Deep mutational scan, measured.
Amino acid sequence: WVPDSEAPNCMNCQVKFTFTKRRHHCRACGKVFCGVCCNRKCKLQYLEKEARVCVVCYETIS
């Protein structure tokens, strides 16, 4: 899990986070992404309901 303080930009597209461009943690890899790069949901083994995942993890999992 990457702390918010260590991620000033999206770890995929590099967009800078602001008050309106929020950070989202991928529940699969723990990296920090913008809403566009972390907009998929899928079922993870260790969680009961679907969770937010990044586009890279989504392609790997599904």
Rank of each mutant, 00 (worst) to 15 (best):
K16D: 11
A51D: 12
F19Y: 12
Q45P: 08
G30T: 06
C13N: 01
K43V: 11
Y58D: 12
K49P: 05
C13W: 00
G30Y: 09
E59W: 06
K21Y: 03
E59G: 11
F19E: 15
Q45F: 08
V36W: 07
R27N: 12
C54G: 02
M11A: 14
N39F: 06
R22W: 06
T20P: 07
Y58M: 04
V15L: 11
K43E: 14
C26A: 00
D4F: 05
L47T: 14
N12V: 14
F19G: 09
E50H: 09
V2T: 08
R22C: 02
N12M: 14
K16Y: 07
V56E: 12
V2N: 04
C10R: 00
R22V: 06
N9E: 14
R22I: 06
T20W: 09
T20Y: 07
K43S: 14
C38D: 02
I61D: 15
R52H: 04
K31T: 02
K41P: 10
C26P: 01
L47E: 14
R52Y: 04
V32G: 05
E50M: 11
K43A: 14
D4S: 04
C10S: 00
C29Q: 00
K49V: 08
C34T: 01
R22H: 03
Q14I: 08
T18R: 07
V2K: 01
F19S: 15
T20H: 15
E50T: 12
C10W: 00
V2F: 09
F33L: 12
V36C: 12
V15W: 05
D4R: 05
E59Q: 08
K49Q: 12
A7L: 03
C34N: 02
R22E: 06
K41F: 15
V32S: 05
H24T: 04
K21N: 13
T20F: 10
E6H: 07
K31L: 09
V55D: 14
L44A: 03
G30I: 02
Q45A: 08
Q45I: 11
C29D: 00
R40V: 09
T18C: 14
H25D: 02
L44K: 04
E6A: 07
R52W: 04
H24G: 02
A51V: 08
T20D: 02
S62D: 12
C37S: 02
S62C: 10
N9V: 13
Y46N: 15
C38N: 02
D4L: 08
A7E: 07
E59D: 08
A51M: 07
V53R: 06
E59P: 10
F33S: 03
S5E: 07
C42W: 12
V15D: 06
C26K: 00
C42Y: 11
F19M: 15
N39Y: 12
Y58Q: 04
P8M: 14
C29E: 00
V2R: 01
R27T: 02
C26E: 00
V55F: 09
K16F: 10
R22G: 05
C34D: 03
E50D: 15
L44P: 05
V56A: 10
H24F: 02
R40F: 12
K16N: 07
G30K: 12
K16C: 09
A51N: 09
L47F: 05
F33M: 11
E50N: 04
N9R: 08
K41A: 15
Q14D: 10
Y46W: 06
E50K: 11
K31I: 04
V15R: 07
R22D: 11
V2G: 02
P3T: 13
A51G: 10
V53N: 05
S62F: 08
C57D: 03
K43N: 12
V53W: 04
E59C: 09
N39L: 09
H25C: 05
E59R: 08
H25M: 07
H25K: 03
C37R: 01
P3I: 14
D4H: 03
L47P: 14
A28C: 08
A51K: 10
C29R: 00
K41L: 14
C13G: 01
M11E: 09
H25S: 03
K41M: 14
M11T: 06
F17M: 06
C13I: 00
F33P: 01
N9I: 08
V15G: 12
T20R: 06
W1F: 12
C29V: 01
R40K: 14
C13L: 00
A7K: 06
K21L: 04
L44W: 07
C57I: 00
T60W: 15
C13T: 02
D4C: 04
V53M: 06
G35D: 14
F33C: 09
T60I: 06
S5Y: 05
G30E: 10
V55S: 11
C13K: 00
K21C: 08
V56L: 13
E6W: 05
G35Q: 13
G35M: 13
R22M: 10
V55G: 10
Y58L: 07
I61C: 15
C54M: 00
K41Q: 15
K21R: 06
R52N: 04
T60Y: 06
S5F: 07
Q45K: 06
N9S: 12
A7W: 02
V36A: 07
Y58A: 04
I61P: 15
A7F: 03
